[in-house]
């Protein structure tokens, strides 16, 4: 028998050889079990209790959910989430695909342009929010600028107008994330097989037809994953709202994430906060699980 080690392996050595990978992974896995799964279980449990300032562990059925769904502010948050995420996803996708197609036309300075389109992704949403808060400032921002340019009657008070404030968050969100969508689509365009393009050219398909009826349909998986990423960003959006409007005026721009934060850390209604967090988790799972499932099935095929 070949004996690679100089000293005779002890039982401890042999044990370590066999089990070291598991020994290294298990504390990390345990960490994940505790901090992710354990915490989710705790939050779900709390959402079924009467906890308010302090957690109480006596089960109280669905009362927190009943309360949550009877809270007008929760409906405001849901409506805002719906408005924000649909506009955010539509605008980012439209701008992203447009820019990706334009950039795919053998542009010499493509690298520089791409760097410019994507840099907002390196910024914190708080920085983005601060910048747009200033630009959209009624009085000194865009409104003032347009009036100086001669449009005396131009008014733009969306930031402080409860009916319109949610759209300012869309404006800033799209500015920050549309370059990201562009990058995802561009990678998708680059992975389209050259042979397909050549065949289309031989068949005499023009550039617009080639894109609309050949390339874009081939990119369905890219559209799918971009949608998932943007939806994920939208549901989690918290920072941008806090920086731009702080959820206001009043709670006009509340979203589930800010609702949860406010109920948990400002109003100390732990049960309701937990219930809203569980609703967020369920929403994300409803989007992600079918996607991952279909991805895995495709890979196994």
């Amino acid at each position: 028998m070949v004996q690679p080690m100089k000293r005779r392996p002890t039982t401890v050595d042999r044990f370590l050889d066999r089990w070291l990978p598991q020994i290294v992974v298990s504390p990390l896995f345990a960490m994940s079990l505790f901090f992710v799964y354990g915490f989710i279980v705790w939050t779900v449990y709390i959402s079924f209790t009467r906890s308010s300032v302090l957690p109480s562990y006596a089960l109280d059925g669905l009362s927190q959910y009943v309360r949550l769904w009877a809270t007008p502010r929760w409906y405001v948050a849901l409506t805002n989430l719906f408005i924000f995420s649909s506009l955010f996803i539509i605008c980012c996708t439209a701008i992203g695909i447009l820019l990706a197609i334009l950039l795919d036309q053998r542009i010499r300075i493509e690298g520089a342009i791409r760097t410019i389109y994507l840099y907002p992704m390196a910024l914190s949403f708080i920085v983005t929010g601060t910048a747009w808060k200033w630009i959209l400032n009624p009085g000194l921002g865009i409104e003032h600028l347009m009036q100086q340019l001669g449009y005396e009657n131009f008014h733009f008070d969306w930031l402080v107008n409860p009916d319109m404030a949610i759209y300012t968050i869309v404006i800033a969100g799209v500015w920050q994330s549309s370059g990201y969508a562009m990058a995802l689509f561009l990678a998708g365009l680059r992975s389209v097989d050259d042979e397909v393009l050549k065949a289309a050219a031989i068949d005499g398909a023009g550039p617009i037809r080639t894109y609309v009826s050949i390339i874009l349909p081939m990119m369905r998986p890219v559209f799918m994953s971009t949608f998932i990423i943007l939806a994920h960003l939208a549901i989690k959006s918290f920072d941008l709202v806090m920086a731009l409007t702080g959820g206001g005026p009043g709670y006009a721009t509340d979203m589930p994430a800010t609702f949860m934060y406010s109920f948990a850390f400002q109003r100390s209604e732990l049960g309701t906060a937990a219930a809203s967090a569980v609703m967020m988790l369920v929403t994300i799972l409803a989007i992600i699980v079918p996607y991952l499932y279909s991805e895995l099935r495709e890979k196994n095929r």
């Binding site: 992974v25 939050t43 549901i235």
Partner: peptide, 27 residues
């Protein structure tokens, strides 16, 4: 070191990347 269960452990740990962090704030 693809020991038994390695893929399951990875999939379970990856789940932590998807959750909205609101669900872990209180605990």
């Amino acid at each position: 070191w693809r020991f038994r269960g390695a893929d399951t452990i990875f999939a379970m740990m990856l789940f932590g990347a998807f959750i909205p962090f609101q669900v872990v704030l209180l605990p």
